[in-house]
Structure formats: structure tokens, C-alpha cells
Design a protein around this nucleic acid. Structure first.
Length: 314
RNA sequence: CGCGGGGUGGAGCAGCCUGGUAGCUCGCAAGGCUCAUAACCUUGAGGUCAUGCGUUCAAAUCGCAUCCCCGCAA
């Protein structure tokens, strides 16, 4: 089959690599235009662009996928399938109608749960026990098309949005190959999504990383694991931003009344902070302008003592 | 040329503004105390103060340049 691959982010790379190895013909890889990014705003291509270049594939980087020029270009490719994975632009019906068989998408959740840009993050934040990947027909409304294949995976206690993404991107690539076989043999089925079970997973905002110490320790723990790699869970300390990368929920009972955010212990046992219910032992943190380090190292250098309240500033 | 913070023994930091013997906590080594310990007491090793140039009688400290790391913003 003649395939046009649409993708940009890290998540899409294994799927493209799998396609490259398959018998299918990739007529073009469409990815987002190069953007200035990073600390010094250097111009950089997407992860997918790098992969496509390594495989010697032709790339197309339209500013707007819906534009007249883009549509004409895509029509001329005469493709059977469009495969869209973490591309980053919304398609118009006109574009979706171009492929002769169908437009396909890999989504990192068990649809209809977690429709949107950050399905993995929200699954972790919401303490889901499992998530997965879905291969579906793309329709105009975001992530609402009928499902072709779906595979679930357990969310482990120590999984983060980062580790899950790593698992899911490969799982997604595998499942895509299975789906292509079904489509090739015309033996697939389209299963409509149950609109009553829709859960939305909007793009994360900076403020989603801000820790509210009044919430229960388990919830904050899920937040810390879920908002990686961006924006990262953070609080305030000494007027600066303090990022928290890793923490454990602790069943500790202090001998006095505590305020949420209060450091009730800071010694070799760890940095223990009071939450709305329960406590967190901060394992890995990073102060603004500082390096990422373990809780013990943090105490040694920053003279953090019991009684201080986190989150007072910023 | 988007804004800002930082590079000081093995780790994390102070000192810099107001130049004049390199300091703290931890770790490490040796010894001691102890039934014992991640506890405590002694002692000790370990540093081109990121790099280069400059100012000065004298630079970790002031000035210029370079390299590297990090936060914000996108």
C-alpha cells in the first residue's frame, strides 16, 4: 500500500521505523516545520524529520495542512492510507478524504477514554490502573473516529508519563502493523466509540505542574509522575521554583499538628513533607538554576530544616 | 543576538558587592568509645576556586572573552 506518514513528536518515531521496515511504500513523510526551540532558540527539525532523513524519505513540512497548496500536494501523492501519529495539526475533512482507503491514527489511550493531546499524562495523574493504545479511523472531531484495534497495558506503581510513553510508542508501532495486515486483507472492522464514556485529556498547562500541598499525598504522587517531562511538578522554596521529579508516599505520623507543605523532617531518612492527607518523601529534586539531585544532597547544600513550609512563594 | 541563574577538595553549598593564608555540611581514611550502629569523639587525606587574557604590590573576589550546565519563555 502507498502510505503518507504524518508525525512530529518523539512518540511517532517507532511507528515510522516499523513502516520503513515493512513492505509498504512510504511516499512522503509530513511533519511540522522546523522551529526555534531550546535554550538558545536554535532552529531544529522534529524527531520524525530526523528519522525520515535517516531512512532517505521525502519530507513535506507545510505551515498549514489545510491550505490549498498542501491539499493539492497530498492529492498528487495518490496514497492509499494516511497514517497520523502525534503530528500536531488538526486536519480538515477535505484532507481526510484524500487517501483511497482511509486516514489512520495511533492514539496513546484506550479510547474513548482520554481523547486529546496528553492522554498518557492524564491517565497517570488520574491514577488509572491501565491504559493502552488505539488504532482508529480518523474523523474530523478530535480522537472520535471508530476503533480498529486496541491493546491495553498495565500502569505500574513506579511508572511515570515518561516510562509509559516509552512503552506505548513501541506498542503502538506493533499494533499499527497488525492493523495494516487487517486492512490489507480487507478483514478489519470499525467499532464506533461509546460517546458516554468519553474522558478528555487536554494539553497540559504550566499550572498543571504546580503542587497544591492541601491535596492528598497519593494524588500529588500521581501528579509528580504524570506531568513529566513537561511542565514537571513544582513548588516554591526560598522564592525560587523547586521541581520535584520523584517522591514516595509515606505512612508517617508526626507528633504535632502540621500545615500542608510543611517539611516535618529533613535528614538522612529523607525530606518528608506534609500533604493534605499523608506524607511525601522527596527523592529527587531540582532548585531553579541548580542541578537535579537526590533529597539527601539537597539537604546538605541547602540547609533545609524541619518546619519550613514549601509552596509559600511563586 | 528572547529573559534569568550557575560552574569553589569525591557530593551539595558559603565566600565575590566592601580584593590580602580556601570555609561549611556530608562523604572518604585512620584511631577511639560502644554488646552494637547510618550514632558519638579524635585526627587526617583531598582544591589548576571552569578556561584564557587584562587591572593590581596582591584576584575565587574587579573587567573583557570563551566553553559547559540549569530555570523561564516558546
Amino acid at each position: 500500500m502507498k502510505i503518507v506518514f504524518f508525525g512530529s513528536a518523539h512518540f511517532a518515531v517507532p511507528a515510522l521505523e516499523a513502516l520503513v521496515k515493512s513492505k509498504h511504500e512510504i511516499v512522503c513523510v509530513v511533519t511540522q516545520p522546523d522551529k526555534k526551540k531550546g535554550r538558545h532558540l536554535h532552529l531544529a527539525g522534529t524527531d520524525v524529520k530526523g528519522t525520515a532523513a535517516a531512512a532517505g524519505l521525502k519530507t513535506f513540512q507545510p505551515e498549514k495542512i489545510k491550505s490549498r497548496e498542501s491539499v493539492n500536494f497530498l492529492k498528487d501523492l495518490d496514497a492509499d492510507l494516511f497514517i497520523i501519529v502525534a503530528y500536531g495539526q488538526i486536519f480538515s475533512q477535505e484532507v481526510l478524504d484524500i487517501p483511497k482507503i482511509m486516514p489512520l491514527n495511533i492514539h496513546a489511550s484506550l479510547l474513548p477514554a482520554y481523547r486529546g493531546a496528553a492522554p498518557i499524562n492524564w491517565a497517570v495523574i488520574n491514577a488509572e490502573k491501565k491504559t493502552g493504545v488505539t488504532i482508529m479511523y480518523v474523523s474530523l472531531k478530535m480522537d472520535s473516529g471508530p476503533v480498529i484495534l486496541q491493546k491495553e497495558i498495565k500502569i505500574e506503581e513506579n511508572d511515570t508519563a515518561l516510562s509509559l510513553e516509552e512503552k506505548l510508542r513501541y506498542l503502538g508501532a506493533e499494533l499499527l502493523m497488525d492493523a495494516l495486515k487487517l486492512i490489507d486483507s480487507r478483514s478489519y472492522r470499525l467499532l464506533e466509540q461509546d460517546e458516554d464514556k468519553v474522558i478528555l485529556a487536554p494539553k497540559l498547562k504550566k499550572e498543571d505542574g504546580l503542587i497544591d500541598w492541601h491535596t492528598p499525598a497519593v494524588d500529588i504522587h500521581n501528579q509528580i509522575r504524570g506531568v513529566l517531562p513537561w511542565p514537571g511538578a513544582f513548588t516554591g522554596y526560598g522564592g525560587k521554583i523547586l521541581k520535584i521529579f520523584q517522591a514516595d508516599v509515606l505512612p508517617v505520623f508526626p507528633n504535632h499538628r502540621v500545615v500542608p507543605g510543611e517539611v516535618i523532617r529533613a535528614d538522612k531518612q529523607g525530606i518528608v513533607v506534609a500533604c493534605g492527607r499523608g506524607f511525601l518523601n522527596l527523592k529527587e529534586l531540582q532548585l531553579e538554576a541548580g542541578k537535579r539531585m537526590s533529597g539527601q544532597n539537597f539537604i546538605i547544600g541547602h540547609k533545609l530544616v524541619a518546619g519550613e513550609i514549601l509552596g509559600k512563594n511563586k
